[in-house]
Simulated assay, not measured.
Amino acid sequence: MLAELTALVRLDAWQEAEAPLLRLEPTLRTVTSSRTRVHLRAIDRDGPAWLTYTAHEAAPC
């Protein structure tokens, strides 16, 4: 799922990135990985506001 999310973020496929992000939510709440945080920062930096909000909800810091 992370690989799928990574690919979609790199392609700026924001609508498609929402589904893998939501599937990762249970994992993101318990596992902290610097690699995952890099991808979430890319969403935060480049993504639309609605997806940024979803990413913050999925992985609260």
Rank of each mutant, 00 (worst) to 15 (best):
T54N: 07
G47P: 04
E57Y: 06
A59W: 02
D12C: 03
R23F: 08
A58F: 03
T54W: 07
P60Y: 04
E16H: 04
T27Q: 14
A58R: 08
A59F: 00
W14P: 02
D44H: 10
E16T: 11
L11P: 06
R41C: 03
R35A: 13
A17Y: 00
T30Y: 09
T32H: 14
T27D: 12
P26Q: 10
R41L: 14
D44M: 14
E57L: 14
L5Y: 04
L2F: 11
L21V: 05
E25Y: 01
R35N: 11
T52F: 02
A3H: 02
T36C: 09
H39R: 06
A58C: 13
R35S: 11
E57R: 15
V31A: 05
I43E: 00
E16P: 01
E4N: 03
L22H: 06
R37Q: 12
M1I: 08
A55W: 07
Y53N: 11
V31E: 11
A7S: 09
Y53S: 09
R35H: 12
P20A: 10
R41F: 12
A7V: 12
T52L: 08
L22D: 13
T36M: 10
R23V: 08
Q15S: 08
T32C: 07
S34A: 13
S34Y: 11
G47Y: 10
R29S: 08
R35L: 04
E4V: 02
T52G: 13
P26V: 07
S34C: 02
R10D: 14
A49K: 12
Y53H: 14
R37V: 10
W14G: 00
R37E: 05
Y53M: 05
H56G: 08
Q15E: 15
A13R: 15
P26K: 06
S33M: 13
A13H: 12
A59I: 04
A55H: 05
A19G: 01
L40V: 10
A59N: 08
G47Q: 06
P26I: 07
R45L: 06
R37N: 06
S34F: 07
L28R: 04
E25P: 00
L51N: 07
L24Y: 05
Q15W: 02
Q15Y: 01
Y53T: 11
V9W: 06
A55C: 09
R23H: 06
T6R: 13
L5F: 03
M1K: 07
A49Q: 13
R45Q: 14
S33H: 11
A19K: 09
S34I: 07
V31I: 15
W50K: 01
M1W: 01
A55P: 08
W14T: 05
A13E: 14
R29L: 15
H56P: 00
R10L: 10
A55N: 03
A3L: 12
A59C: 14
T52K: 13
T36D: 04
T32E: 14
V9H: 09
L5C: 02
W14C: 03
T27I: 06
A49G: 10
L28Y: 09
L8W: 07
P60R: 13
L40Y: 10
L22K: 05
L28I: 03
D44E: 15
R45M: 01
H56R: 15
P26E: 12
T30I: 13
L21M: 02
A58Y: 07
E25K: 13
R45Y: 04
